[in-house]
Design a protein around this nucleic acid. Structure first.
Lengths: 195, 195
DNA sequence: AGGGCCATGTAATAGGTTACATGATTGC
DNA sequence: GCAATCATGTAACCTATTACATGGCCCT
């Protein structure tokens, strides 16, 4: 539903090809929205025929040519309209929680490895976000913006979204520790795994 | 993909009709999974024809008859198999984050009301979760289970999932405050709204 | 020679949402 | 009389995932 709008935002931040958008959705935008290249190409085509984006063929050397998309006036208007409409606060959809409650009817100890694996992934994501924060939101640029007294809205807003990702990963890690402690309590024989 | 499995878990916890499942998905199970009654009826029908669940017609007085579903052996086996298979740690999908980054190309102040509305909803959810925690996981039952030395796995696992919901709502509230503070900083004229 | 990255797409299927449809009972 | 709750469903549509498909360049 909001994939179109996520694409508009990304293209406003920087025009690019479908492939580049797919990469961004794996990285920064993927912090809060995911999409595969198939989806992106399909939606881009519809957006193009609706006049929301403009296309420009860019010939390249040593690489296949690409189509660079940028936001057209109609797209900007569509985004603006969406921004002014209220959206439903969304609920989480967490497979792992289903598994945890399901473990009551199976072997809770069998879940330990799985939860540890998830914990590992979230540790890596947190490190990745924090590295991005240091790279993009600390140092001279941040200082000069503050010193000038007029903060850069785009940067500030990107930063607060990133802080949301950091908070989410930290919360998740703490919760997964809670889950692991609970699972250990239910299966006192299991060792706390390898170091 | 996991809707079937969420239904299996819910029916193992307590057999019930499609309607009752839909209600549970609005309440407790809805903390980590959502589904509408149309979806549930469709999936239940498939599960029935696959032999995952058994049906029993229950005549009622003053109410329409209902079909009470319970988990069959094949369903239990399917759940067990799913539990032992790894799943991908999922990413968030947050419309609001798209809006926040999009606000850089529109009026950031216009977002304040929307964020405050979300904050309100999450405050209510947190209160609802905490009330459920007090109702179901404090008092004599909890104490007796601990005293007996052998904790009830089902209760413990339900509780840790609920604690996850609480942690999620608390984290979200703190983040929304951060978002609001950022939006106020970007639009110094705007008053911090009505009390 | 093989793997990975850049770059674009089609086709089939699964999953989810929205709208429509019915009908009895209970409470205000 | 009207709205809400209980109870079940169909149909159309939109969205998302998975698998398949192509092809050149660069590096080891």
């Amino acid at each position: 539903m909001a994939l179109e709008h996520a694409i508009l935002v990304s293209l406003l931040e920087k025009p690019g090809s479908g492939y580049e958008l797919a990469r961004r959705f794996e990285r920064s935008i993927g912090y809060f929205w995911t999409a595969t290249h198939q989806q992106i190409y399909r939606v881009l085509k519809r957006m193009e025929s609706d006049g929301w984006v403009d296309v420009r063929e860019v010939p390249q050397q040593g690489r296949p040519d690409k189509k660079e998309y940028s936001v057209a006036d109609l797209g900007r208007a569509a985004l603006s309209e969406w921004l002014h409409q209220p959206i439903e606060p969304e609920s989480v959809r967490h497979d792992l929680a289903v598994k945890i409650r399901g473990a009551a009817f199976d072997d809770p100890a069998a879940l330990i490895r799985e939860v540890e694996r998830h914990r590992q992934v979230h540790t890596e994501r947190l490190a990745h976000y924090l590295a991005g924060e240091v790279r993009d939101f600390t140092g001279p640029q941040a200082l000069s913006a503050t010193a000038a007294g007029r903060p850069d809205a785009g940067r500030e807003l990107q930063h607060v979204v990133l802080r949301g990702g950091v908070a989410y990963e930290r919360m998740t890690l703490a919760w997964l520790d809670d889950v692991l402690a609970t699972l250990y309590r239910l299966t006192p024989r299991a060792d706390p795994g390898p170091p």
